[in-house]
Design a protein around this nucleic acid. Structure first.
Length: 562
RNA sequence: CCGCCUGUGGCGCAGCUGGAUAACGCAGCAGAUUCCGAUUCUGAAGAACGGAGGUUCGAAUCCUCUUAGGCGGGCCA
């Protein structure tokens, strides 16, 4: 049986707005456009369960002192049928609300009722969102930045989904263009090196070990039969041989990282089905292009960019932006996603306005493209920064990282800070599987709860479904704190989705673990009055469900034993 | 030269749709377990939020300038 828990914050919002409208109707307050206000859990719990700053926000509006407005509001307010037990007007004009015990009991019932869907909402109204992330070049192994992008994008997609968006995950494969030519060149030279002396790798080729291995594998099958063949044919064969292996490798490696995409989108399909040439035509038709020194330019300055940029080079070859524009056009127009979210490294930030400018020229609302820029990750070992460079082949790859660091830890670490902050990944610390790693703190809380439930079951005390009267006994401060935090999950997920910042739920779950540990040390479950034991058992269960639901979003294990 | 991002106690960070004594973790000092897992909890110490102005009844949060660091500004991707 489902319990209807009307969100306490919603109730408070209604109370205040109704009170204001009543006062306006009575002429006690003058008519005015009512701005939204904040309802928050005060830092100091002596200030109630929820604090409202409406009277302060509206003080200029009504031309009265905040405290006076608060008085007027509350004399016009009705608390009938709400969870509000009492209120106080305090400080500069805060209205502090105190919740009745019924609220706490209902929250626990609600969580136990909803179980694995607790925390989900329909905030996103089913809007279609495509989250594109990692999209590493298939010309070599993934690096540490891809590891951050992977954890971030995957978790963000899960958060969007939980917040009520229809969400798909996508990997864009750059299997065309210059870097593929470079890939071909590098493979070619490595292959020739096996049979000839004096072949040097140019500065701008890929120097990684993986290229050498591809060449050797190719040689094992074909021997030297390609050495004397036409260069273009040889390169084409080498790419045909190595590229699918690389793509498969990306898929497998990301799979190990627990990332599964709905779509692997190949750039080459945009060329094959003519979408790139079509985009060039559309851009020309838009009137925002011109020819200068045989190259086709886009008038980006018309859209607020500081420079125009080249679409098609003088030699007739489009620059990389063209397929990118076509790709995003495909997402938003052809496939009709309401939102395209790209997770990109901060080094791409200069390119975002250009892409948006082109989309605008094509008549697409550029606000439908949101780019989450993540700052660079630096790897630190022995207190020293390791320089990550793909070309040198010495960079630490995603695979190496996952060999060193537990996957749970990596995924948690990369979602510990907001995307837009510089992040030093300390390998020594992450490899160190101790309490210095916050993921263990959270997992421990979960394991501890499971242990309690197991323990009591062993003594014949069953974890029965919650019962309202029993839950009314949960009125210790630590119990209320814990429940209040559990109650905040849905809002927290929505906030995380709005801000495109999964780090919010990482912080949330850490705090949840802390509040549980505090409850645990203050309140015993076992050996209390039978009803209280049942109530606390239910609270444990609700906490476990909440922790597990968050960890599931992050695709991190919730171990029953550690 | 221009643009974007960041700068909060020794270190790592939260808070940033402006609001009541700036939260938390680590290092670190003092404590707690005859009892459900000590990878735990309690207490004390430690920062006026890079700097300077400004807006406001009120600013770590908004604006301007400045400074330090990161990243961009190719007919490279």
């Amino acid at each position: 049986m489902s319990v209807v828990v009307k969100n306490a914050k919603e109730q408070i919002k209604n109370i205040i707005f109704k009170a204001a409208n009543n006062a306006i109707a009575d002429g006690v307050l003058e008519n005015a456009e009512l701005r939204d206000f904040a309802i928050e859990v005060p830092k100091d719990r002596a200030n109630g369960d929820y604090a409202v700053n409406a009277a302060m926000v509206w003080s200029r509006l009504f031309k009265k002192a905040p405290r006076q407005i608060a008085e007027i509001l509350m004399t016009n307010a009705s608390l009938e049928g709400t969870y509000i037990e009492k209120y106080e007007i305090a400080g500069p004009g805060f209205i502090n609300f105190y919740l009745s015990q019924r609220y706490y009991a209902d929250i626990v019932l609600d969580v136990e009722d909803k179980k694995e869907v607790y925390g989900r909402s329909d905030f996103g109204e089913g809007k279609r969102v495509l989250v594109e992330f990692v999209s590493a070049n298939p010309t070599g192994p993934m690096h540490i930045g891809n590891a951050r992008g992977g954890a971030l994008g995957d978790c963000l997609a899960a958060v969007m989904d939980a917040a009520g968006y229809y969400t798909e995950r996508e990997f864009y494969i750059n299997d065309a263009g210059n870097q593929i030519n470079k890939f071909a060149l590098s493979l070619d030279l490595r292959y020739l090196q096996l049979y000839k002396d004096g072949i040097e790798m140019p500065e701008d080729s890929y120097h990684g070990e993986d290229i050498v291995n591809h060449a050797k594998a190719f040689a094992e099958i074909h021997g030297d039969s390609f050495v004397e063949k036409d260069e273009a044919e040889r390169r084409s064969e080498l790419v045909k041989f190595a590229l699918p292996k690389n793509i498969k490798g990306l898929e497998e490696d990301l799979g190990k990282y627990r990332i599964k995409y709905d779509t692997w989108f190949k750039e080459s399909t945009l060329h094959q089905n003519g979408e790139t040439t079509r985009i060039i035509e559309l851009l020309k038709e838009s009137g925002y292009t011109y020819v200068n020194e045989d190259a086709l330019w886009f008038k980006a300055t018309e859209f607020g960019c500081d420079k125009d940029f080249v679409l098609v080079r003088a030699n007739g070859v489009p620059t990389y932006v063209v397929p990118d524009i076509a790709y995003h056009y495909n997402k938003l127009v052809t496939r009709k996603f309401d939102k395209a979210i790209d997770i990109l490294g901060a080094d791409h930030h200069g390119y975002v306005p250009r892409l948006k400018a082109a989309l605008t020229a094509l008549g697409v609302d550029a606000d439908r493209l949101d780019v989450v820029l993540m700052q660079m990750v630096r790897l630190v070992r022995d207190g020293e920064v390791i320089k990550a460079s793909k070309r040198s082949g010495k960079a630490i790859t995603l695979v190496t990282l996952l060999d060193e660091v537990p996957i749970d830890a990596a995924r948690f670490f990369f979602n510990l800070r907001e995307p837009n902050s510089h992040f030093d990944f300390d390998l020594d610390l992450a490899v160190n599987e101790s309490n210095s790693n916050p993921v263990y703190y959270v997992q421990y809380a979960y394991a501890r709860i499971c242990s309690i439930i197991r323990n009591l079951e062993g003594e014949g005390i069953k974890n029965n479904p919650a019962n309202f009267d029993e839950l009314m006994l949960l009125n210790a401060p630590e119990e209320r704190e814990l429940i209040l935090h559990i109650a905040a999950l849905t809002d927290e997920i929505v906030a995380s989705a709005k801000a495109y910042d999964p780090a919010k739920i990482t912080h949330y779950v850490q705090e949840l673990a802390t509040k549980f540990h505090k409850f645990y040390s203050a309140c015993r479950v076992k050996g209390e009055d039978e009803k209280l034991t049942q109530a606390r058992l239910s609270l444990c269960e609700a906490t476990a469900i909440t922790i597990k639901n968050v960890l599931r979003l992050m695709k991190i294990d919730a171990p029953e034993k550690m």
